[in-house]
Write a protein that binds this DNA or RNA. Structure first.
Length: 449
DNA sequence: GCATGATCATGC
DNA sequence: GCATGATCATGC
């Protein structure tokens, strides 16, 4: 049974707000709290609103047109952050593709959300948790335009017979995340006999962080890149960025510096240049669009010989953490799969100066993510078995996955020096390491080979 | 010339 | 003090 006792948005919201501050162990009548994933949502639905959890295509309160979502957040030094993506309904590839956004299952179910948020606290029993906020959420129009573009992109792949190639990084705010008992849960798709992973519509955790800050906690807005959202009726976000930057293609770093009157050091120069070109006052990575969509800018410098000198690094990992993780919930997968990279490409000219060539938006394709997974799993194996370290009098060599072993990724040190270490599970110390994209793989991504 | 290990520089 | 982007040094 669905939440039929609450037939208006106001009635739903009123009831929701009455649970604020009550420890969940006092709310839970059916001893649901200990049941793992989704337990808190179930407690609210069953014990507070008095209906059984459903996974149908109707919203939880059909007459009121409201979908209930209990969602956790974290308090960090940098403020409120969503703990995870918000997962909505499973995508029925077979029926959804010939709908429009307005008639889609997603919009039917999630047009209005009742967001009930609670703080996730490690080492605190779930019974002590309380719902802290309950708000009705409708998507602001400027976000909705991007979400519609995201929906079209997802359906574009389904219509092209590529549902099996969907990944979270394809889109900006609304994503198709995997959902199923195991990674092997698959479904049919309409234009290809290859079975595709079961996926659900989801709001990226980066976008959820924004919703929580702005609409649930009422914190200040970050600066927007797109001041007048109506441009998104004419073009996609990526096209807009490219249109703003294109006039500067072909200029050297020095010319751009002069043009904008910047006196900056090498490291932050490119970030500052980007901000100027996009007419953003502050830090480009702090804008709404970049934060919402998890866009990670990376500068790539192409040498005169058409090659890239260096591989691309990612955050370091702790040996003792990584062996506790599975690939699906690993830090690396969390980082890479939903990320949208913005490569800012400079090319060296005859005079040895770096010329702004272009930007390229990119996210990792499913098959390459699978290769990263292979490298990651081998890394975990080696660490679990005990890394072999040999000192040749100069350098310490190891047997973690090397660049020569994969076409995509490898593991290498990323530390201040060889004394900047993390402990191995057996107690030995090893210089901090991280995953890197192979130099040659980056060259392939930006069409150099 | 390139892979691999090591380290520097900057900003928060 | 640390994370992160960037780069160097050595040996095959």
């Amino acid at each position: 049974m669905e939440g039929t006792n609450y037939t208006t948005k106001e009635a739903v919201l009123k009831r929701a707000q009455e649970v604020i501050g009550i420890p969940l162990r006092d709310v839970d009548k059916k001893d649901r709290l200990s049941t793992g994933k989704g337990a808190i949502g179930h407690v609210i639905e069953e014990s507070w609103f008095g209906y059984s959890p459903n996974s149908e295509s109707e919203p939880d309160f059909p007459e009121a047109g409201v979908e209930l979502k209990a969602t956790p957040y974290l308090r960090t030094q940098k403020g409120i952050r969503a703990k995870e993506r918000l997962v909505c309904n499973i995508i029925n590839y077979m029926t959804e593709y010939d709908k429009t956004f307005d008639t889609s299952d997603f919009w039917h179910k999630c047009e209005t959300l009742l967001i009930m948020s609670y703080e996730h606290r490690y080492d605190v029993p779930k019974g002590d948790y309380t719902i802290d906020k309950a708000v009705l959420f409708s998507f602001p129009y400027e976000d909705l335009l991007i979400i519609q573009q995201d929906w079209e992109k997802i359906m574009g792949k389904v219509r092209a017979g590529q549902a099996h190639l969907l990944t979270e990084g394809d889109t900006l705010y609304l994503a198709a995340c995997t959902k199923g008992a195991t990674a092997a849960t698959v479904r049919e798709q309409p234009f290809n006999s290859i079975l595709a992973k079961q996926r659900a519509y989801s709001l990226k955790s980066s976008y959820m962080t924004r919703i929580l800050n702005r609409y649930v906690f009422g914190n200040d807005e970050d600066e927007r890149i797109i001041k007048d959202w109506r441009v998104l009726r004419q073009m996609t976000f990526e096209e807009y960025i490219a249109s703003k930057l294109a006039p500067y293609y072909g200029k050297t770093q020095l010319q751009l510096k002069d043009h904008f009157g910047i006196e900056s050091t090498a490291k932050s120069l490119n970030a500052v240049l980007l901000s100027k070109m996009l007419e953003v006052a502050g830090d480009i990575t702090k804008t709404q669009e970049f934060k919402n969509a998890n866009i990670i800018p990376k500068t790539i410098r192409v040498q005169r010989n058409g090659k890239i000198k260096e591989s691309m690094s990612f955050p370091t990992f702790r040996f003792t953490d990584i062996i506790e993780q599975t690939w699906e919930d690993s830090d690396l997968c969390d980082y890479l799969e939903p990320a949208k990279f913005m490569f800012v490409i400079f090319k060296e000219n005859e005079d040895g100066e770096y010329v702004f060539d272009r930007v390229k938006f990119w996210n990792i394709p499913a098959e390459d993510l699978a290769e990263v997974q292979r490298v990651w799993e081998r890394t975990v194996e080696v660490i679990k078995a005990g890394v072999e370290l040999t000192f040749d009098g100069n350098c310490t060599h190891n047997n973690l996955p090397k660049q020569s072993e994969s076409s995509v990724a490898h593991v290498r040190p990323h530390a201040r020096d060889s004394h900047d270490t993390y402990p191995l599970p057996d107690g030995r110390e090893m210089p901090k390491q991280c995953f890197w994209f192979n130099r040659t793989y980056v060259e392939k991504i930006i069409d150099l080979r």
